[in-house]
Each structure stands twice: as C-alpha cells, then as structure tokens.
C-alpha cells in the first residue's frame, strides 16, 4: 500500500550516475594504491641501507651523512629554480592574460605550452653547451665583487658547471609549467570582481592585486608545487650541467649534488647495498616531495574562509 511514487525506480540516468561515481571512486583508490605501492617498494628495497654497518655505506659514516649533503644540494637547486621561475612565471602569465593584445597573447600562450613539452635532455644540452660557458664571466664578477658573501665565494668555476647554473636551467624548465597554469587561472578570474575593482577607480595593476591575484592564490601555489615537482625530480638536465662534488656553500664553484642526479648517474653500475642506498635516496626524495605538498595544502587551507568559495 505504501509505495511512494517519488521513490527511485532504477532509470537509465540513475545507472549512469552509479557507474560514474563508481569509476571516480575507483580512480581515486587507484591513485592512492599506486602511491602506497611506490612507497612500500621504495621502503623494502631501501631497508638494507638502514640496517647495514655504517662503515659500509658510501662515505663510510652511515646513511645520514651520505644523504644529508645531497638533500641540501637538491633543496638548493630547487630553491634557486623556484626563486627565479615563480616571479617570472607569474609576471609572464599576467602579461599574457591581462596586458598583451589578444593576438599576441594567443601566440605567446602557444609558445609557452610548447616549451613545457621540450624533453629535459635538450634543456640539459643547452645548459651544458651554451648557458654554462656564457655564465663564466658573471661568476667571475660575482666572485670578485661579492665574494665576501659565502654563496658567491670564489674562485669561480672555469667551466660554469655549478649548482647555480643547474638551478637556472631548472628555472627555465619549470617556467612554462608555472606560466601556463597561472595563466589559465588568471583568465578564470570572475569578470564581476575585476569590474568591481575597476569601477572603484583601480588602475590595471591595482585591479590585478585586488581581484586577480587573491582569486588565483591557491592555483598559483599548485602551479609552483607542480614546478617544484619537476625541479626536484629532474635528473638529465642536472646531470649534464652540474660538475658534482661535496656540499659547499658557494653556488659558483663546482660541487654539490642533487638526489635525482645522484641516482641517475650511479644507478647503472649499482648493485647490492649501493643499489639499496640509491633507492633509499629515492625514498628521501619522495618524502621531501610529500612534505612540501602538505605544506602547500596547509597554506591554501589556512585562507579558506577568505577564498570566496563560500
């Protein structure tokens, strides 16, 4: 008697809904499972490193002293890359989205997207053949005039193959990622908010700081994080451009090493404990990436109340 005519009765649309939500859930689980599988694989393979006699580890003083310098090297290279690429990328993206005439903007956007698709070995070759030699005079000038600052301490590298060069090459590589994502987000700024600023008598730049940038903030953080991912994990370009060595504060001498390049350079000949060591290094890189991403999420979440999503 109590059949409710409003109760659902298995129409086609409903089935589609179920299939889609199932597929979305499945895809979500798959991603998490993959991440977990990678973490477990890295951990198991790396395990011997943590249990082995410290004297057997490369450097002879245990894993921590082996990994520490290259963690710092990785962070330095990535930091240089982001310090350069973030402001430049945002500026270029703003130029394309809010300043350039429409034709030019379309062309520029296209070129930037193309840049993102260039394989890293090409950037590496360019860094090795063109950029490194070209930077030598600058490095010498820095050593001569700003050498009292530890990061510019001389004598400067004669080949230009330094961590600063590697950082610059990485900056060029992540620039298109940051630019292209930021531009997409800048273009999505609601016209309503842009006009609100303009109607109050804002200049174009004020309109950008009042409407566009606040709206784009979380997106910019994501763009930078993706760029950082590429900078942290880059092997070829760094391996080609950096002449490696121990940890030193000077950015314009040969020296320093990044985790990704360390793994790539040594992996082919590695076996046994050395292999486990490199995989442990990979695990550390994985953790660094995760931590950085969590921090970025936290930054975004802290401003949720003012995000405009409510």
């Amino acid at each position: 008697m109590t059949t409710n005519a409003l109760r659902r009765n298995g129409s086609k649309g409903q089935a589609g809904d179920k299939v889609f939500s199932g597929a979305a859930l499945g895809a979500g689980i798959l991603i998490l499972a993959t991440l977990l599988a990678v973490a477990i694989f890295l951990f198991i393979q790396a395990l011997p490193t943590f249990t082995a006699d410290p004297t057997l580890i490369t450097g002879g003083e245990g894993f921590a002293s082996y990994i520490f310098p290259i963690v710092i090297g990785t962070v330095i290279a990535a930091a240089i890359a982001l310090l350069i690429a973030t402001p430049v990328g945002i500026a270029v993206a703003l130029f394309i989205s809010h300043y350039a005439p429409r034709r030019l903007a379309a062309g520029l956007g296209y070129v930037i997207d193309l840049l993102a698709a260039i394989p890293s070995v090409i950037y590496g070759a360019w860094g090795y053949l063109v950029l490194a030699p070209a930077l030598v005079p600058t490095f010498q000038w820095l050593a001569a005039n700003l050498g009292f600052i530890p990061i510019f301490a001389g004598p400067a590298s004669q080949t230009g193959k330094t961590i600063l060069t590697a950082g610059i090459v990485l900056a060029v590589m992540v620039l298109p990622i940051i630019t292209s994502l930021s531009r997409e987000i800048f273009l999505q700024t609601p016209k309503l908010h842009e006009e609100a600023a303009l109607a109050l008598g804002a200049t174009r730049w004020e309109m950008i700081t009042m409407s566009v940038l606040p709206f784009a903030r979380p997106g910019i953080v994501s763009a930078v994080m993706l760029g950082l991912g590429r900078a942290l994990g880059e092997t070829m370009a760094v391996a080609l451009v950096l002449s490696t060595g121990g940890l030193i504060p000077s950015l314009i001498k040969s020296g320093n090493q990044t985790i990704a390049a360390e793994i790539a350079l040594n992996f082919p000949e590695a076996f046994g404990l050395r292999l486990a060591e490199l995989i442990a290094a990979g695990l550390v890189l994985f953790v660094i990436t995760l931590v950085v991403n969590l921090i970025a999420r936290a930054i975004i979440a802290r401003h949720k109340e003012f995000s405009g999503a409510n």
Binding site: P190, L192, H193, A196, A199, F215, F306
Partner: peptide, 22 residues
C-alpha cells in the same frame, strides 16, 4: 578612465564584494 571612475562610482546587478577581503 581611472580618474573618471573614482568620481563616478558603480554598483552592479550581482553583488560583488571582494571575496578575499574582510
């Protein structure tokens, strides 16, 4: 136009406070 707009203000059809501002 910036000077013009600071003298002639505008209220829009859809309310548009800046969402990231107090």
């Amino acid at each position: 136009p910036v000077t013009v707009r600071s003298q002639i203000g505008m209220v829009f059809q859809r309310p548009n406070p800046f969402p990231t501002m107090s």
